[in-house]
Design a protein around this nucleic acid. Structure first.
Lengths: 203, 203
DNA sequence: AACTCAGGAAACTTTATCGGTTTCCTCGGT
DNA sequence: ACCGAGGAAACCGATAAAGTTTCCTGAGTT
């Protein structure tokens, strides 16, 4: 790896963290440069503009998510429930990419970048998760009366909204505990089962 | 009602819509005054500052939501499922209050207002929804192994993320259809039931 | 008619912000 | 010594917006 590629990689990592946490307009190039202990001049030698930097961040992030989801989907050793498990984990880990301040900001400040994220989301996260549920339906594992697209949004929304450090802290749950609960409710709902022995234990 | 109270009410209504849709920092007093066909001078005669206006908006909004949730919770003619139904509808209608650009903005630009919203959310939405689930658990209607606080977040998150005009349009579903699906998944999950005739119909 | 007050439109004041550019300087390599 | 990379920070230009004030009009009252 060349020095330039290494520097570029560091820039992307810092920019990714800041943009996804705080949005596009709220993160200054001064701030990014400062955190990298780098002058703005150098930063601009790697990326021609703030938008160029953000675009590179978006592309890198979603390319990685796509690879992870594809690997899970194609893993023949996994059943549907395990695949769902993997999907939720991937989405929870990448939650900041699919929601949050960056999208809100881009919608206003850089519409073309917003469109880019939206396209990636649609192409990667929704499409692969939908494929999982469609296959599960055909295999008779998932109920046939609920549209896949809606379930996709439930999966993604629940993973994002709950499997986050701040929410886990508020709930007083560990990640594995919360994860198990989310999955249980997603698979079997909140209705009590009078004949279901597997759920008798008091929480 | 006096002319002042009437004007004040109009201001609150417009400010509420704009703040909740676009956030605090992105909505200017010029914009609010313009939409009201009012001069900024007059606007400032009713509210001393932008923050004062936003604070009044927040308080009015959550007071209304609280009243609605309390009415649903205390309605002895409703069973748990109907109460859940009502809660989801109230939350979906008020989704912009509980999430969205306003919160993100306030966290940064007006921390004391952010804390105010957070306190209201905790006090009103979470507390009443949690009471519903706790009662449902005691009555044996809801499963005992999932913490109420987590379910509360699932209910609220699902209502907010899906029961919105843009998402409904993308899904090609009407509000009643999407609502029914969300409720079905929340109550009974996505797992197929081999012996459940009530779900045999293809979507 | 003259005066007063309310209130709209818009100019004004003040302050702050930030993307992108340039200057000054130091250090390492040749 | 010279050159180039790069950090710190000043600079430039443009923009934005909260809050204040001016100019003007219309309605009501005396």
């Amino acid at each position: 790896m060349t020095a330039e590629a290494e520097a570029r990689g560091r820039i992307l990592a810092v920019a990714r963290r800041l943009f996804f946490a705080h949005g596009f307009g709220r993160v200054t190039m001064d701030e990014i440069a400062s955190e990298l202990a780098m002058s703005k001049k150098t930063l601009y030698r790697h990326f021609a503009s703030k938008e160029d930097l953000c675009e590179a961040v978006i592309d890198a992030a979603f390319t990685a998510i796509d690879a992870e989801l594809a690997a899970a989907l194609d893993d023949v050793r996994l059943g549907f429930e395990d695949k769902l498990d993997r999907f939720m984990r991937i989405v929870a880990a990448g939650y900041e990419e699919a929601r949050g301040p960056l999208l809100t900001d881009l919608h206003r400040d850089a519409p073309s970048l917003w469109a880019r994220v939206d396209a990636w989301r649609s192409k990667v996260v929704h499409t692969r998760t939908r494929a999982l549920f469609a296959a599960g339906k055909r295999a008779g594992v998932f109920r046939p009366d609920v549209p896949e697209d809606l379930v996709v949004r439930l999966v993604i929304g629940n993973a994002q909204n709950i499997l986050r450090p701040d929410v886990l802290a508020a709930l007083g749950l560990s990640f594995p505990e919360a994860f198990a609960h989310c999955k249980a409710v997603l698979l079997d709902g909140v209705r009590a089962r009078p004949c279901n022995g597997g759920r008798g234990a008091a929480h």
